[in-house]
Simulated assay, not measured.
Amino acid sequence: MKFDNQVLIFCILYMICCFIIPGCAYHETNTGSPVYYQSITEQSPRSPATFVSDTVLMARVKSKFMSDDMVNDTNIHVDVRHGVVYLDGWVADTYQHRMARDLAQSIEGVARVVSRLHIANPGTVLFINPEIR
């Protein structure tokens, strides 16, 4: 069986189009929703030493929240990864949101604070009298 030059050229072009070109395509990785973007720090694995230092930082942040009478910490979840503090949950007002963020940032060893706290009553400020508790 004798191949024609046109058939040979067609077969070569077909193989290039089917096998070689798709392998060269650019594939963008999905980094998640822009609203809840998870950084590389939050996803990357930790060494045992980093895990211990993150646990110590988390305990310091939680104890700072518990000792402060102006922040109601019952609905705040604290997570620490590679020195970055992630705050999730609900707070009563913008004042508590700012106080929680500032208290976490004031602790030595905290690299950054990512606040994903939701405000139950935006635009209001609730002052808690420490003598009532």
Score class of each variant (00 low, 15 high):
residue 2 K to Q: 05
residue 5 N to H: 03
residue 6 Q to K: 14
residue 6 Q to A: 09
residue 6 Q to S: 06
residue 7 V to C: 01
residue 9 I to G: 01
residue 10 F to S: 11
residue 11 C to K: 02
residue 15 M to G: 03
residue 15 M to N: 02
residue 19 F to M: 00
residue 22 P to G: 01
residue 22 P to C: 01
residue 26 Y to P: 00
residue 26 Y to I: 05
residue 28 E to Q: 10
residue 33 S to D: 15
residue 33 S to W: 08
residue 36 Y to A: 14
residue 36 Y to I: 13
residue 36 Y to R: 13
residue 40 I to D: 14
residue 41 T to S: 12
residue 42 E to H: 05
residue 43 Q to N: 10
residue 44 S to I: 00
residue 45 P to I: 12
residue 46 R to P: 00
residue 50 T to W: 04
residue 51 F to K: 06
residue 53 S to E: 10
residue 54 D to A: 13
residue 54 D to T: 11
residue 54 D to S: 11
residue 55 T to L: 06
residue 57 L to V: 10
residue 58 M to A: 15
residue 62 K to A: 06
residue 62 K to D: 04
residue 66 M to A: 14
residue 68 D to W: 02
residue 68 D to G: 02
residue 74 T to Q: 13
residue 75 N to H: 15
residue 76 I to T: 06
residue 78 V to T: 11
residue 78 V to A: 07
residue 79 D to M: 14
residue 81 R to G: 01
residue 82 H to F: 07
residue 84 V to S: 10
residue 91 V to H: 08
residue 93 D to M: 03
residue 93 D to S: 09
residue 93 D to P: 02
residue 94 T to N: 15
residue 94 T to K: 11
residue 95 Y to P: 00
residue 96 Q to E: 15
residue 96 Q to I: 01
residue 100 A to L: 04
residue 101 R to L: 03
residue 107 I to C: 12
residue 108 E to M: 13
residue 108 E to S: 15
residue 108 E to A: 14
residue 109 G to V: 11
residue 111 A to M: 12
residue 114 V to M: 01
residue 120 A to E: 08
residue 120 A to Y: 05
residue 121 N to R: 08
residue 124 T to Y: 07
residue 124 T to W: 06
residue 126 L to E: 09
residue 127 F to T: 08
residue 129 N to T: 10
residue 130 P to E: 07
residue 133 R to V: 07
residue 133 R to E: 08
